[in-house]
Design a protein around this nucleic acid. Sequence first.
DNA 1: CCTGTATTCACCCATTGGGGTGATAAAAAC
DNA 2: GTTTTTATCACCCCAATGGGTGAATACAGG
Lengths: 215, 215
Amino acid sequence: MEPDVRIVLYEDNRDLREGMTFLLQATPGLALVGAFADTGNLEMQIPGLKPDVVLMDIDMPGRSGIEATPLVKTLRPETQVLMLTVFEEEDKIFQAIRNGASGYLLKRVPPSEIIAAIFDVHRGGSPLTSSIARRILHFFQQQAPVPSKPVDYSLSVREMEILKSLVKGYPYKLIAGEHGIRIDTVRSHIRHIYEKLQVNSKTEAVLKALNEKIV
Amino acid sequence: MEPDVRIVLYEDNRDLREGMTFLLQATPGLALVGAFADTGNLEMQIPGLKPDVVLMDIDMPGRSGIEATPLVKTLRPETQVLMLTVFEEEDKIFQAIRNGASGYLLKRVPPSEIIAAIFDVHRGGSPLTSSIARRILHFFQQQAPVPSKPVDYSLSVREMEILKSLVKGYPYKLIAGEHGIRIDTVRSHIRHIYEKLQVNSKTEAVLKALNEKIV
DNA sequence: CCTGTATTCACCCATTGGGGTGATAAAAAC
DNA sequence: GTTTTTATCACCCCAATGGGTGAATACAGG
């Protein structure tokens, strides 16, 4: 027999909190071990109550759910944090995710789905409202169009080495020392690099190297 | 009255294709307008059949679902592509998403969920199996630890402008012209920038600006 | 064997960049 | 209303950088 999934709820709205409390207590397999209006005592509550899943509102007086999430993950990494909010703002979504949230539901979803989502995060899934998921996918699609094709400027081995040093911000003299060659040789290589990259200054070369190449 | 959602299915497994066909035809509100075992004639089919939603298997003989997805989006950007597959490999998931897929379901989910997901993508959502969502969130959490806090170096407005020009790779003379000031003034600003950023060369400043600042 | 590229080095020269020092006037802060 | 920051400009000095030109060695491919 599986032990109940231990839940802690942070929700400042009294009606919602009481409604959720009722719902969670009425569900077999779930054990609501705490329900609080703010995250002020989170440092005590999490280690003491040892929740498997934390239901976290975002907008709360004092420390917001976004700020509280990384604390939960630090205090008890195995606890899954499920954001439960009315807001659908890009910023908050991404902040919550970066801070370690494992799911993100809008409050308007039916109770049955909230319950399902709780079991879901506890099993290792990440329930996302599909409109939230869409935003995340969009973000991915926007991010990744560039880094696909590292254009071939056919730099020689040596030239690549020198370019890497340039990107590190080294001056010619240092580069020369680093590779045990004369500074004029470095300059020679760099001229060739500039030709191949079609640039005419260190800064441009570094920028180009960073933007479209594997440096 | 809403018109039916037009569906095209690509699935090489005959049993699955026929099963899906049956399911889709039996569902009110959906109109299956094509079901194919491969994507060979996709260039004809998509413009001709004008689907609202394409259900796309990943592993198919010839052109895979991953390769076919960007074609669909090119031929008909308003068509939503829903990946439907047994595979849960990172690479394929991310490739499919980057290629424009709007949802990603594992085939083992119950038929009712597949139907729900079709309506969902058509409404603009992105249904994701929660285990897939978890992988995507993990990716986010790993990627983005740094860019959260743009440290405040309290650069003045002018200094920010100059810094932006530096990042563009402009030499001092050009920057001076660009802002209608003497080159010595540019140099003066740049010295202040170096102090504030704790660097001592153009390249370092540009690198620092790119790495941790909003330039 | 000849040719092209890679790698190395050298010298000249002009421009650019970076440090020091300081000054002035306007704007913002206290 | 005095002080501090911001923005502006100036001059000196020297190191760093970029372009031109040339050249030797070595190695790979025809």
